[in-house]
Design a protein around this nucleic acid. Sequence first.
DNA 1: ATGTCCTTACCTTAAGGA
Length: 259
Amino acid sequence: MKIATFNINGIKARIEALPAWLATANADVVCLQEIKSVDEGFPREVFEGMGYRVETHGQKSFNGVAILSKLPLEDVTRGLPGDDADAQARWIEATVIGARAVRVCGLYLPNGNPAPGPKYDYKLAWMARMQARVAHLLTLEEPLVFCGDYNVIPQAIDAARPELWTEDALYLPQSRAAFRRLLHLGLTEAFRTRNPSPGQYSFWDYQAGAWERNNGIRIDHLLLSPQAADLLQDAQIDKQVRAGEKPSDHVPVWIDLAA
DNA sequence: ATGTCCTTACCTTAAGGA
């Protein structure tokens, strides 16, 4: 079962680049972030025409997540528990029925800038809510995949120029500590586990020639429960997508599970 | 860090978010 995560930065803007990548990627499941669309505005027929089931959790203008799947989905839920007043569309879950059933959680973690401030407070509170949801799901002792745009640079080796990020919400010690708390629940960070070398990124800013200078950061992650980690066969970043026509500022990251 | 991009609205230009 090949599972990918891809922050597309707007479905309308990516209506050519996303299908082009899908046609070559051969993924079974794709978690999308920043669809920037309401559910009714999402061009689901484009993806249904490519053999995907489409589940969205959108909102107007900002945020929004979705799951595309060639395999059957069960028990789709929308929203991260823990704050009924939170209207931001950043979390979707579904159970994918392959050779094994895998619970897939697609997430778009808050950016948090500027920090300190209310946006950073929201980020940290959201991460605490995610930790509670992950802890609950882990009690099921099933294959779980938590994938998406975490907006966290885990370590210095995950940035080309870490010194530029020391005051940024993506790299502040509190953000990285909260990310480690997720890992310490018993999750495995798929890409880093299989690829220990530095210089591997999933995001390059549109500004200041970041792509041309390879001034990137690695912020899109797939975290696995022990039962999913046991099935891990491969983990890769589709870096070349960033050089394509009208690209997102993120590229797809994917895993292959024996499921 | 900022040489950009995306979306929306008081829509041919600016603001907010990233």
